[in-house]
């Protein structure tokens, strides 16, 4: 083997890339490969039968649909929260800021039970909503609510630094040119923070896809109605249907990966539109 003398300007490339690959292999690739290997041993017919039965399809629909809806709501509301926290100084701001991280820290089962208690038909909020004909607990809406709860910090924490970085001068420049507040928001501010919004959306969406603990309490887990994919996998495992569980997991994995790739591509496009780093 011949060695080519190479010099790099930044030291540590070999070391960091090496540890990155080792780390990712042990923690991410190996378990995923095991999953794929197990799925491969199934054969096409069995795989399709396990991955595409009506109950499983319903679970996919709910999982992806609710995750998208929750990430969408978070992208909008999280942007508002991040704006308020990043732009204004008010009493209780520090407290509010700390509160944002709570869904990160709280055991998901705890948040699930708390939300269920709140939104159950006899719960504090559920009681108010029931006369309006809105049921939250034990419906797909409940799943969305739980996913919004756990996804919010992702959007807020991604956006806060992006908004703080926006120079106030740019808004002043827009105002001097005669733009209204709304025009400034739509033409200047939103395009500038769009990449960060998309990142927050992707993180929130990814988290929602895999969420289990908080959802199982509020959803009621009715097959074909409010059963999410991760619960279905667990159910299959409990019934010793390893093949079925693997098939669902592999499908989820592939779909999530493709979706996240798409969102990342979209975000890269938005960053390019943003003209990269500059003042």
């Amino acid at each position: 083997m011949s060695r080519q003398p190479r010099t790099r300007q930044l030291p540590g490339f070999g070391l960091t890339l090496g540890s990155t690959l080792l780390y990712l292999s042990l923690l991410v690739l190996l378990p995923l490969a095991a999953l794929a290997a197990k799925a491969a041993s199934l054969g096409w017919r069995d795989f399709l039968a396990a991955a595409a039965e009506p109950r499983v399809l319903a679970a996919y629909r709910l999982t992806f649909g609710a995750a998208l809806a929750a990430a969408g709501v978070n992208a909008v509301c999280g942007t508002l929260v991040a704006w308020a926290l990043a732009r204004y100084r008010f009493a209780g701001r520090a407290l509010l800021d700390a509160l944002i991280d709570l869904p990160f820290a709280l055991p998901t089962a705890v948040s699930g039970i708390a939300l269920t208690a709140l939104y159950a038909p006899n719960g504090w909020l559920g009681q108010q909503l029931a006369p309006l004909g809105v049921r939250v607990a034990y419906t797909p809406l409940g799943v969305v609510v739980a996913l919004i709860f756990i996804g919010l910090p992702f959007v807020v924490r991604t956006l806060q630094p992006a908004i703080e970085e926006l120079p106030a001068e740019v808004e002043e420049a827009a105002a001097m040119l005669g733009a209204t507040r709304w025009q400034t928001l739509r033409r200047v501010i939103l395009p500038a923070v769009l990449p960060a919004v998309l990142t927050g959306f992707a993180l929130s969406f990814a988290r929602a896809l895999g969420e289990y603990g908080s959802v199982v309490f509020i959803s009621g887990n009715l097959p074909l109605r409010t059963e999410i994919a991760s619960l279905l996998i667990l159910t299959k495992l409990e019934q010793y249907d390893y093949a079925g569980a693997t098939a669902i997991a592999t499908t989820m994995l592939a779909a999530s990966f493709v979706l996240l790739l798409l969102i990342n591509g979209l975000q890269a496009w938005a960053v390019r539109r943003g003209g990269g780093e500059q003042r």
Partner: peptide, 20 residues
């Protein structure tokens, strides 16, 4: 209001709209 004064303003750090 700022926008009604018919004043042009040039900032030290340009303040261009970077995505435009």
């Amino acid at each position: 209001a700022v926008g009604r004064r018919e004043v042009g303003f040039v900032f030290q750090h340009y303040a261009l709209f970077r995505q435009l």
